[in-house]
Amino acid sequence: MNRTHVNCTVNGDDVDFLAADGISLLDALRDELGLTGSKEGCGTGDCGACSILIDGKLNCSCLVLAPEAEGAEIVTVEGIADGDHLHPLQQTFLEGAALQCGICTPGFLVAAKALLDTNPDPTETEIRYALAGNLCRCTGYDKIIRSVQEAAVQLREVAK
């Protein structure tokens, strides 16, 4: 199995790592770069716990090969806060108790950010469709939706 030297940007930092051909980007992020925020739920693209942004697009990192990240700009859940200031989504998830066990939360945060980056004023239906690829086994969907709506309001006020 080949090993590839991969250069990419993760959360604004230039990084490089060695990746065997069969290693997923999720495993490279977690095991090579120590970014354990992205979780492996199913490993088959059903649950969305491993959601990250690749060049601004939402992806399941368990279904991306690490060598394919060459040259890409990657954002993980670790990169969405502004230093010590939580992203409005993170803050509203906390305040709205939009999590129970929390393993799905990083994926939901990244998927919600992908939505709000392109659609600052989504309807509830649009939020539900945008988060359709993220599963929560504690069934916290309503609190998650409400927290995304609240974060959207806050982000729109900041943008004014």
């Binding site: 992806n59 399941c60 993220n134």
Partner: peptide, 9 residues
């Protein structure tokens, strides 16, 4: 087809 994550790939 599938989810936003899958459709992007």
């Amino acid at each position: 087809i599938a989810s936003p994550q899958i459709r992007n790939t």
